[in-house]
Simulated scan of single mutants.
Amino acid sequence: MTGFETTGHARVRVQTKSGIAAMIIGIALLVALVAMPWWASQGTIRSVVELCCYIAIAQMWNLLAGYGGLVSVGQQAFSGIAAYAMFAMAQNLGINPFLAVPLSLIAPILLAIPTYGLLHRLDGPYFAIGTWVVAEVMRLLTSNVSYVNAGAGMSLRVMTQYNAHERAIGITILCALMLLITVGGTYWLLRSRYGLALTAMRDNPVSAASQGVNVSRLRFLLFIAGAAGTGLAGAIYFMAQLRITPESAYGPQWATVAIFIVMIGGLGSIEGVLLGSIVYFFADRWFGEYGATYLVVLGILTLMVALFARNGLWGLLNKVVDAPWFPTRRTLVSGGGQ
Rank of each mutant, 00 (worst) to 15 (best):
G170W: 07
L316F: 12
G80I: 01
L317V: 11
F127D: 00
Y294S: 03
F78D: 03
I25T: 15
L189W: 02
P205D: 03
C175Q: 04
V31P: 14
Q59W: 04
E50P: 09
L298V: 06
A208P: 05
M239L: 15
A255P: 05
V145G: 09
A258Q: 01
A228G: 08
P324W: 07
P125M: 06
V257H: 02
E289A: 13
V12D: 02
G299H: 13
V12G: 03
R285Y: 11
Q76Y: 08
V262I: 11
V206R: 12
Y147S: 14
V183L: 06
I24Y: 14
G26D: 10
P108N: 07
N96Y: 10
I106F: 14
I171G: 00
Q76G: 09
C175P: 05
S72A: 10
N204W: 10
G272A: 07
G231H: 03
L140Q: 12
L196F: 08
L122M: 12
R202Y: 04
V333E: 11
G43K: 15
S146P: 09
L313D: 00
G337N: 12
G68A: 03
T245D: 05
I106D: 06
M138W: 08
S104K: 01
F281R: 06
G251F: 05
V145I: 14
R167H: 11
E247Y: 11
Y294P: 01
A197N: 04
W325P: 02
A58S: 10
T302E: 08
G151L: 06
P252D: 03
N214A: 10
A208N: 04
T44K: 15
P252I: 06
N204A: 10
N318C: 11
N149S: 13
Q75E: 08
G69K: 04
L332K: 13
W314A: 05
I109L: 15
A309Q: 13
T186H: 01
I173W: 15
Q42S: 15
V12S: 02
S41W: 15
T293V: 13
C175I: 07
G299K: 12
T256P: 04
L103G: 04
L119V: 10
T2K: 11
G130W: 06
A107I: 06
S146D: 14
I181C: 02
G312D: 00
L110D: 13
L317G: 07
A233W: 00
V273G: 00
M263L: 14
M239G: 00
L103H: 07
A90F: 01
S248L: 14
G130L: 07
A258F: 04
A208M: 05
P97D: 01
L64K: 00
L180W: 07
T293R: 09
A227T: 07
A323I: 10
V133A: 08
A40S: 15
G272S: 08
V320W: 12
A21N: 14
L70C: 04
E271F: 03
L119S: 03
A40N: 14
G124M: 09
T2P: 06
F98G: 03
